[in-house]
């Protein structure tokens, strides 16, 4: 499938740790990840596997800036150098997300009153793209994902789970980011639309995008994964309770 010979790494992760400290619950510490490392190349799709609660989504969220990076290193590689995400200042993240890191979350975060087509084209407008052209591309994607045309101008707040997810997928793929994070994008889709997503992933690979994905559906996984990264308990999911005295908030 994938030739590793001339592929260059786009992302390297090394020695990643993640712990949640829940002050509100007597200082509960949840160790989710210890010493995780991986390399992701341009044009490949690496699929995360492992039981529920092992930390798959957590990893994607760390790569997307949603979760803090406690320890370890996340580096992006470019032709002219590297970028360390663990030291990236907060103000730089929105530029990075706009141009480099795309993310399809498991659920669409609905913006009230904004029409589906506008939700989809927003990542292009954010880059200053031409409005008509962006709309055209958004509509093409929505059509490919079989979202009925009459729904394009409606806000997706009242859409079904699968319809919302298709809007989400279109929004995630329209920007053609060089690094794409996919958190169960096909979970609530029927077979037809799953095939469309698989095709979209194939096209992304062809243009050299690197993808890190989570797919529960084995059939989809087999069809998109170039490699599999199994997460197991040695990498985390250890919960420790620290019975320290809780400072009261007033």
């Amino acid at each position: 499938m994938h030739s590793m010979t001339n592929a260059r790494p786009r992302l390297t992760v090394s020695g990643l740790h993640k712990q949640f400290l829940l002050h509100g619950q007597g200082g509960l510490e949840i160790d989710v990840m210890r010493d995780l490392s991986l390399t992701l190349h341009a044009g490949e799709c690496l699929v995360l596997a492992g039981r529920s609660g092992i930390g798959k989504s957590t990893l994607l969220k760390m790569l997307h800036g949603d979760y803090c990076i406690d320890q370890g290193r996340i580096r992006l590689h470019f032709d002219d150098g590297t970028l360390d995400l663990e030291t990236l200042p907060a103000y730089a993240w929105h530029g990075l997300r706009r141009d480099v890191i795309g993310y399809v979350s498991q659920f669409l975060r609905v913006v009230p009153r904004v029409a589906a087509v506008d939700v989809v084209m927003e990542p292009l407008l954010a880059r200053g793209a031409d409005e008509a052209e962006s709309r055209q591309r958004a509509e093409t994607l929505l059509a490919r994902l079989n979202l009925p045309e009459r729904m394009w101008q409606l806000p997706p707040g009242t859409f079904s789970g699968g319809e919302q997810q298709r809007v989400n997928i279109a929004r995630g793929f329209i920007g053609e980011h060089p690094l794409l994070l996919l958190d169960e994008p096909t979970a609530s889709l029927d077979a037809t639309n799953r095939d469309v997503v698989i095709a979209l992933i194939g096209e992304a690979k062809a243009r050299g995008a690197a993808m890190l994905g989570i797919f529960h559906d084995e059939d989809v996984r087999d069809r998109v994964a170039d490699r599999l990264l199994p997460l197991d308990d040695s990498l985390g999911a250890r919960t420790a309770f620290t019975p320290n005295v809780q400072e009261t908030l007033s």
Binding site: L22, H23, G24, K61, H64, G65, D66, Y67, C68, L249
Partner: peptide, 22 residues
């Protein structure tokens, strides 16, 4: 606490922020 909006809301670090978000 300061940070990227998603980080503050999804992975708040400070005790007070956690209370605020929860």
């Amino acid at each position: 606490e300061t940070g990227l909006t998603d980080q503050i809301l999804d992975d708040p670090q400070h005790e007070y922020t956690q209370l605020l978000v929860s």
